[in-house]
Design a protein around this nucleic acid. Structure first.
Lengths: 192, 192, 192, 192
DNA sequence: AATGAATGAGGCTTCATTCAT
DNA sequence: TATGAATGAAGCCTCATTCAT
């Protein structure tokens, strides 16, 4: 492992430790000392990689960036199967321990900056979902009795709700199981 | 206003200030000084009413106590209207600004103690919901294709999801509107 | 000693300790811990009185304020005796240990802000001296072969020079002795 | 430029950068990182040339070494012209920006070690001046009414005073001008 | 010889909590 | 009961120094 690779590895160690600890104790309660101790580096090393404690969040990419959403854009034909698949991908690559899920939620709420980031991302997701839902309504896959934007809202709420309660320790052992079950019910409610 | 009333008023002032500030800045970031300053009392006064900062939460009763749940126990006849009504009551008396909702969510996640409190409360709620759901299934109000405990999980997730996303600034101006809309969809999904 | 008096006493203790320590070790080298330890208070107490370490300088009033200079304005008759007297007063009420003198000099050089403060004060002093010197020249007390503003510069330099070298440990045990001797020579040089 | 020359050049770059930065920000406030950045070398390089940060001062030779003083030893005939000349040489090769002068003064006051160094050097200078002054007194160039060691003290104070006030931004643009003017007045005061 | 990542002691500052008034 | 000065543990961050490359 050369010098550059080592740097990347160290950065990753710190990030992972931070994420874990935020998950366990929350942002404010987690100290830089705790992070570096878990990462197995000296305290000073943390500040070689991040200007301040808060900056760690810039790398957390909370609910994975807009890039991921692009996959939803070019769907042709029946919507439902694609959305199901997208959902599973999305969850599979997301944080996969209750701890981590809570960490990410916490970080979203922790400061005004990441709150608005997160809100913006959810708004984007919503805007991306609406045409999909409209299309599904036109195809007769979803009921048209409920406005598309309201359905989008509720899809997001379902996602957040599962994340939140699962993060708190409720539901099935696997997040994906819980998520799929909830969305099955959600889709049932959309039947025409 | 006699002595006893004054005490109660002071306690309330402190509590309200604390709740507002937790809403604005989160638990850890809010200082006792900020609380007492907003409440218009001296710092020492805070500790005349609470043993420590954390104890404020004992009075917050976040997602309102089990007591409230009792109302659900003695329902007779059709379930759905009662649940609808309960939900509206529950939301009406809960925190009604996005700030406060976020404060309560944050406080739940802030420390292990309130996290487990909250989890316990949700478990209780779930246990209380299950017989209701079973009853509704027997009555043919809800589908029996989905196990009652899973439905209970999803009801809670819907509730948390709406709270969370609404707290973050999304959805209808009024939480109750958003909540009702989401549960309408939820109930649709439960149709036999 | 009542509460208010205690506060003043505590503030003074901190200030005195700070000044002493700046004298012994310089500004940057002196830690807040050292200051509070010598003052006999807790570290936190320091920050009850000063927002930050730097703020101590606001109270140091280095080479005593312009107010003192006012005395020079209304001199009538022969100048020299008054100036001698002023000088002795000025030195008598100034910092009177080598340590303190060094502390004040150090604080003047420590940051751009106090540097410009000090410079401004010296400029004011100069402006106040010039008419006095002109008057003395007219009276035949001082030579007119040297421009008044240059004489003023050199008076200041003499003052600073004595302060500096005495502060460093050189010269007579008493600053006033050294200062008077230097100014006698200075005045000799001004004879017509 | 061969290897040996490169080494010298690098050392000089570091020294110059250090001096400049000490001038701008003082000793403690200047970091090794700042020095190496300005010098255009890596941080580690600094420690290849100096054992520690403080050691830079060993090369600063603040008020130029005793060696310089040797010139004063073998004066024959009238003293004054030689002293004038020595003074101009001394100033000419000294630090010639207000910044640098302040840097040197600051460094002298910054730590006990350089303070005593500087004091020692001034004492030496004084010891070297005294026989010169006695000689000048014997020749009738200087007054004998003032003890030689006191005159020596005051010469040094004049030198320091000019340096100090000029460093702070006062007086003529050129240090040498200011210095010469001050010493002319000083010498006037020494007339028999 | 040059580099810069890693180290950790130590500084400044905050803040929950205590306690004398 | 109300006050706010005093406390000191603990946090964040800096930076001189070391060392492997």
């Amino acid at each position: 492992m050369n010098r550059e690779e080592k740097k990347i590895a160290t950065r990753k160690k710190i990030l992972d430790s931070a994420l874990e600890l935020f998950a366990e104790h929350g942002y404010e309660t987690t100290t830089v000392h705790m992070i570096t101790e878990r990462a197995g580096v000296a305290k000073g090393t943390f500040f070689n990689y991040f200007d301040c404690k808060e900056d760690v969040f810039c790398d957390l990419q909370t609910f994975r960036a807009t890039l991921e959403f692009e996959k939803l854009k070019d769907i042709r034909g029946p919507i439902l199967p694609h959305v199901r698949e997208f959902l599973m991908e999305f969850v599979r690559f997301g944080p996969n321990s209750r701890q981590l899920v809570r960490a990410v939620l916490l970080s979203d709420l922790s400061n005004e900056k990441s709150l608005s980031n997160q809100r913006k991302m959810l708004e984007e997701l919503k805007e991306m979902l609406i045409p999909l839902i409209v299309e599904a309504q036109n195809r007769g896959e979803f009921t048209s009795a409920i406005p598309a934007d309201m359905i989008a809202d509720q899809a997001i709420q379902t996602y957040m709700g599962v994340s939140f309660t699962w993060g708190m320790g409720m539901g099935d052992d696997k997040l994906i199981t819980q998520m799929v079950a909830s969305f099955e019910l959600f889709f049932r409610g959309l039947q025409p």
